[in-house]
Write a protein that binds this DNA or RNA. Structure first.
Lengths: 198, 198
DNA sequence: GGGTACATGTAATCAGTTACATGATTTA
DNA sequence: TAAATCATGTAACTGATTACATGTACCC
């Protein structure tokens, strides 16, 4: 009963809610909810299901007549494992993988030092900021959409995590807008002071 | 010249800044800067270096006398590849892997339906929120520390991405505090309204 | 009945992690 | 000089992704 990768708990959690589902259906569910902040390709669900079944945490009900197909259901052992995980004080710290921010971080590395180095860096940063604002605004809109899904009832945990996603997107939008507004004095710079020479 | 995994660009980016470094030194650099939002174990750097070297994007300078050791340096081709990536409009969307939020999401799944179902869920959520606040406050303090590192000069891209990290932690702290304050009407619930029956 | 979208699965590959092993350098 | 710490690397394994292959249902 070593502890499982987190994707396994996603599967267990969904099956605990659903009683029964095919990997395909799980994939749908993930897209509609947690997929925003924790996703993986559908094919992984097959591997995950295999592992969980081998450990007796779910049962795979395979049909071989005509078309291959498997239905998954959680077992009591699976429920216990899930509950234990839900009660375990958080293990891994959150990780944010944001290619946009990484690009920002490395902008200076991409330009030759000397001459109007900082001018070209600034220009690149402005472009990047514009893109990022668009990207995050698009994502925010997607989240808003999901808000309307009836399973996302206000006040529920599902809805709260969606809410957090939206706040996160808004945070990013604000951040990149600041970048756009003063690309030579990025956020975290001097308290205010407009660009030097003013 | 297919495109590389992002960890490869981390290595290229650092080498572009440093001219030369051992995998161990890269590991140190990562811890001090981007490691917060994009990390991997040191051992991966060896694999990454191997791949990059095979593609001619860096050169590995191996010393075999006495102790094995390798020094890495970026090549011109590596610089070009890095620059191309820096200019490429963002590919993958940001992903946030936060086990705390995932736990919140799945709380209801961990409790038996019926009887005082919601009471026990609420209790679990309160505990979770307390933990999360502590965790994120600890992380925020770590970020603040890093702020003092001289390479994190205010206004620079490096510093800005750190700033974003701090804002992110603060966002999480605020979120979980709201959860703690009204665990039966989680964020994203009705506009305000204190608990029912008031 | 031919096209399109939905549904299902496997195999091969690649990335990421854990666990281990050991060499050099400082310090008590 | 023994212990502690810093530095270095590999091998084995597990997880995650890509690419492919095919079946079923509906729709025009």
């Amino acid at each position: 009963m070593a502890d499982l990768p987190i994707s396994a708990y996603v599967v267990l959690g969904l099956l605990a809610e659903q009683e029964e589902a095919t990997p395909y259906q799980l994939d749908q569910l993930i897209r509609r909810s947690i997929g925003n902040f924790w996703s993986f390709p559908r094919s992984q669900l097959y591997a995950e299901a295999g592992r969980l079944a081998r450990q007796g945490l779910i049962i795979e009900h395979r049909e071989e007549n005509g078309r291959r197909r498997r239905t998954l259901a959680i077992t009591d052992a699976g429920r216990r494992q899930l509950r234990r995980w839900l009660e375990t004080p958080t293990d891994a710290p959150a990780e944010v993988h944001d290619p946009g921010v990484l690009r920002l971080h490395f902008q200076p590395a991409g330009h030759d030092r000397g001459e109007d180095h900082s001018a070209s860096v600034t220009q690149a940063i402005v472009r990047l900021a514009g893109e990022q604002i668009a990207t995050h605004e698009r994502l925010l809109a997607v989240y808003r959409q999901k808000t309307e899904n009836p399973t996302m009832r206000p006040g529920t945990p599902q809805r709260a995590s969606l809410e957090l996603g939206m706040r996160y997107e808004q945070l990013l939008i604000d951040f990149w807008k600041e970048v756009l507004d003063s690309p030579t004095n990025l956020p975290g710079g001097a308290p205010d002071g407009p660009d030097p020479a003013t």
